[in-house]
Design a protein around this nucleic acid. Structure first.
Length: 579
DNA sequence: GCCGTTTTCGGCCCGACTGTTTTCAGTCG
């Protein structure tokens, strides 16, 4: 059993216990246990097999035994018994905004609601509104949330498919008859969510490769299975398609299946202008039309070159200006993961992180970073164990001492993720903020302000000279919660005017600010910080998702402050400070 | 269910907002 599966079972136990009205602290223990399993730095499942989990904080005797049972037998009897009391589809109700355990329990026991479909029915029929504690507005909110969810049905966040994509790609590349293989589609274009995974490979033996693909261990169900193409479902419901083509066809097919559709339409038009027709297999001369000799194409770059274009990176293929830039040799040299020198906005056990300051520092060093910025929550974020002034000052001191120990080989920056309060004031005074190396300001509550008020609230925070950067500007949770109402161009203008950095929150749940705004921000001279918002040592690796979005937003290493080496990045952090 | 140089019981994270109420329960962060 994988750690993800084990963590999910613990999470589900917590949900089921909530429905049964169990002791909330017991429920929290299961939730904490799930987080520990998910984010533990070592091989937690191997430890579970060997029954060596004792001593890990958050895992006591009961969870240790349950994890041992899961790791060795692949099942958990306690969980099997518990889940048999409810329909499997009940879990999806927890994803509806405005529904918690109490309301779900009421819906289930009073009306027999066991799925989203049931829920929709009783909301529309008026039955739900008659339940005690429910009313017209509750029902409207529920229906809105269901609609949002169905708009994004069968979409997945990148973190939900990334491992699967890499595993399948590796499996394909390891097959002796496969010469080249790639993931295509929106995944390759760096989209924030995807609805399926498209694989392409070149081979002389397509049937053999297709046969191999549909029998891979991660295949749950085969949907279609032909000589050059197959579609399958992975266990988490992700559809994966494979196309097998010849080596000659590969570059054409790679471009075709990478898309976007809009990009391909423009590309085919440009081919037609040369007298060539372009499809997923080749250029062919258009009949009855004067044309130059067909170019020889071995890879994507040659195909673009043959049309008078520089190579267009997959992330840029949305037909939003990349052709004009490619014609003029003005495409940006996109940022790469290797360019990052450090990261800001990370949490520790001082607030709601899973790893200590030292563990986070060591993990960042192991990843080859030169510096790590700590930004734990501020006191208003009670739920996240936010730091008050006393604890923050103590952390500053702890960081100072640790930095002496590092002797300049590595540096911790002391910061905070300070709450932007309802009126735009901050959760810490300027005197306190002045003692930090930097400050991330974020909205964590009162999401329902009218747009003008929310925008003004954030701008007021940005105008504070101690606010180095703005955290997750829209508050969205991908596929779960839409952005609050906010005028992004106005925020970008204010950031440009005040010299405030805007974060690209790299958590796969957020990817916020969205890639669609970065071109504008860049034009206005606003700098970006790619921030993992890590709550564990593993969370630091989310920068990978941030890099994908930054590339999609046309950003180069010059636009992203955490590409700067130690010795230079400090100046950027100080830029807004009065002194 | 977890945790403990205040150890084996008794705490455990708290406040705002919303919509339903007529004084508060449920949800969220």
């Amino acid at each position: 059993m994988t750690r993800e599966a084990a963590a999910q079972i613990l999470e589900r136990i917590a949900l089921l216990l909530e429905l049964k009205g169990e002791n909330p602290f017991k429920i929290r223990a299961y939730k904490t246990g799930a987080e520990v399993v998910e984010s533990y730095a070592g091989d937690v499942m191997q430890l579970a097999i060997e029954n060596k989990l004792a001593g890990i904080k958050g895992i006591g005797d009961a969870l240790r035994d349950k994890l041992h049972e899961m790791a060795t037998t692949g099942k958990l009897e306690f969980y099997e018994n518990l889940r048999s009391e409810f329909p499997e589809s009940l879990f999806e109700l927890f994803e509806v905004q405005g529904l918690g355990p109490k309301k779900i329990a009421a819906l289930y026991t009073e009306l027999g609601v066991g799925s989203i479909a049931d829920l929709k029915r009783v909301c529309e029929s008026g039955e739900a509104a008659r339940l005690s504690g429910f009313g017209g507005k509750t029902v409207v909110k529920i229906l809105e949330s269901i609609a949002f969810r169905s708009e994004h049905a069968s979409e997945f966040r990148v973190d939900q498919v990334y491992g699967l994509a890499m595993d399948i790609l590796e499996a394909l590349r390891s097959h002796p008859a496969v010469s080249r293989a790639e993931v295509c589609g929106s995944f390759r274009r760096g989209k924030e969510t995807v609805h399926d995974l498209d694989f392409l490979c070149s081979t002389r033996k397509p049937e053999e490769v297709i046969e191999y693909f549909v029998k891979l261990p991660m295949v749950e169900k085969v949907i279609a299975h032909g000589g050059t193409k197959a579609s399958v479902y992975a266990p988490n419901g992700v559809q994966c398609d494979l196309r097998a083509v010849s080596a000659q066809e590969f570059p054409y097919a790679l471009i075709y299946f990478t898309g976007s559709k809009e990009h391909n339409v423009e590309l085919r038009q440009r081919a037609l202008d040369q007298g060539w027709s372009l499809n997923e297999y080749a250029f062919t001369p258009v009949e009855g039309k004067e044309s130059r000799p067909l170019p020889s194409v071995h890879d994507e770059a040659e195909l673009y070159r043959s049309l008078g274009l520089d190579f267009i990176e997959p992330e840029l293929r949305e037909n939003i200006g990349e052709f004009e830039a490619a014609e003029k040799g003005q495409l940006p040299h996109l940022i790469q993961l290797e360019n990052l020198r450090g990261v800001f906005h990370n949490h520790t056990t001082a607030s709601d992180g899973m790893a200590s300051l030292r563990e986070m520092a060591e993990a960042a060093r192991d990843l080859g970073m030169q510096y790590l910025g700590i930004a734990d929550h501020s006191k208003s974020s009670f739920q996240a164990n936010g730091l008050n002034e006393t604890r923050l000052l103590a952390q500053i001191e702890e960081i100072r001492e640790m930095n002496e120990e590092f002797e300049g080989h590595f540096r911790l920056f002391s910061g905070t993720e300070v709450d932007i309060l309802k009126d735009g004031s901050l959760d810490f005074s300027d005197e306190i903020l002045a003692q930090l190396d930097y400050c991330v300001a974020s909205v964590h509550n009162v999401f329902n302000l009218p747009e003008a008020e929310m925008t003004q609230r954030i701008i007021r925070a940005i105008e504070n000279p101690h606010v180095t950067m703005l955290g997750h500007v829209t508050g969205r949770l991908l596929l779960q919660r839409p952005s609050y109402a906010v005028n992004i161009p106005a925020i970008i203008d204010a950031a440009a005017e005040t010299g405030t950095i805007i974060e690209l929150n790299a958590s796969a749940w957020r990817l916020d600010m969205d890639w669609r705004w970065w071109k504008l921000a860049k034009e206005k001279g606003v700098k970006c910080s790619i921030n993992p918002d890590a709550h564990s040592t593993r969370g630091l690796q989310d920068v990978l998702f941030g890099i994908r979005s930054a590339r999609k937003g046309w950003l180069t290493r010059k636009d992203v402050i955490n590409c700067l080496p130690l010795g230079e990045v400090e100046k950027v952090l100080k830029k807004k400070r009065p002194d």
